[in-house]
């Protein structure tokens, strides 16, 4: 196990360096001079321009610039935003809870609905339930979620008026962020209706973001279950006269979980990609919207730092999935 752990950790390092190189290189090849962009319409005198080139170190060799960037990254310094003048690292962690809260709710919805759907479909293979569930899963999988979001807004916000269109909470409520998670903070604040407001803001974005992972989890659970249900020990359990829920739930699902857990872990990347669209549409102040806005504003340090942080998140989650996978299934370790 230790050898597996170490070898897996060792592959993490070159990938991390590679991601650093990519996010660094992107900014250097972007068209347009970042300093001119930063100066805006007022323009710059030649002396001030030179001063700023030196300040940002653009006059030094690329390799030196990269080394500075890389050592900075290792110390948690991702540079300063051109627009807000705040450190990118601080901005990332100020906004990250919003994305985390949204993604967490989405993945909970996806698991709570997706797992049973997959099990029911597998148990009723070829019957009506199977077909209905798998057809809906395929529709969900094919869904352009930006359109799905607009559709839900038309129905639930426009026609029915049940949910708000954007933001995390009504402007009526104000309280200092404690944890950064609106659901918890609104409860802590003790203000009447704050929690309900937070939930009402959260519900549509979570549904939208959950759609594709839900479909993927349902499909994966079904196929993993089908594979397991054909095994000998399931036949044994059945012939022993165990109740079907016990066989399906305990014997089969437990063994079908391994590929499902992998899919759940891998859907983190999917969630972050989905968060870009979901957060933009619902004006959700999280990482996705922050990245899109920075790209529009050509705020290079934020694009560079944000890309790196997001990739790092995905890599860490993939690493954890791999390690747990190795923990559950000893065969993997030997490879």
């Amino acid at each position: 196990m230790l050898r597996f752990l170490i070898s897996r950790l060792l592959t993490f390092i070159p990938t991390f360096i590679g991601v650093c190189i990519i996010s660094f290189a992107f900014i250097r090849v972007l068209p347009g001079d970042p300093i001119v962009v930063m100066a805006g319409e007022r323009g710059l005198s030649d002396e001030r321009y030179q001063e700023m080139v030196e300040q940002f170190g653009f006059d030094r060799p690329l390799i030196v610039q990269f080394w500075d960037f890389f050592t900075g990254v290792l110390q948690g310094d991702l540079g300063t935003s051109f627009v807000t003048k705040r450190p990118v690292f601080d901005e990332f962690f100020a906004l990250f809870p919003a994305t985390l809260e949204l993604s967490f709710c989405a993945i909970v919805i996806a698991i709570v609905l997706g797992l049973p759907a997959g099990v029911i479909a597998a148990v009723n293979r070829g019957k009506f339930f199977d077909r209905a569930l798998m057809s809906s899963a395929l529709v969900g999988y094919s869904m352009p979620i930006f359109w799905w979001a607009l559709l839900l807004i038309i129905i639930f916000s426009g026609n029915l008026g049940w949910t708000p269109v954007s933001g995390r909470i009504d402007l009526l409520y104000f309280f200092p962020p404690v944890t950064g998670f609106m659901l918890i903070d609104s409860l802590l604040s003790g203000q009447d209706g704050a929690f309900t407001s937070a939930v009402r803001h959260l519900i549509l974005p979570s549904i939208v973001l959950a759609t594709i992972p839900l479909a993927v989890i349902a499909r994966q659970t079904r196929s993993a279950m089908l594979e397991v249900l054909g095994e000998d020990y399931i036949r044994t359990a059945r012939s022993k006269g165990l109740a079907p829920p016990r066989v399906n739930g305990l014997h089969a699902l437990r063994n079908a979980m391994i590929p499902v857990i992998t899919v759940i872990g891998l859907s983190v990347g999917m969630l972050l990609a989905g968060a870009i669209l979901t957060e933009t549409i619902f004006s959700w102040p999280g990482i996705g919207k922050w990245m899109v806005d920075s790209i529009y504003r050509r705020d290079y340090p934020v694009v560079q730092g944000g890309l790196l942080m997001v990739a790092l998140m995905v890599m860490v989650v993939n690493l954890i999935v791999d390690l747990t996978y190795g923990l559950i299934n000893p065969k993997i370790r030997k490879r």
Binding site: T15, L277, V310, A311
Partner: peptide, 11 residues
């Protein structure tokens, strides 16, 4: 691996 570790839409 590096390309895959960045969410596709963001990249």
């Amino acid at each position: 691996d590096i390309i895959l570790s960045i969410p596709s839409l963001l990249l």
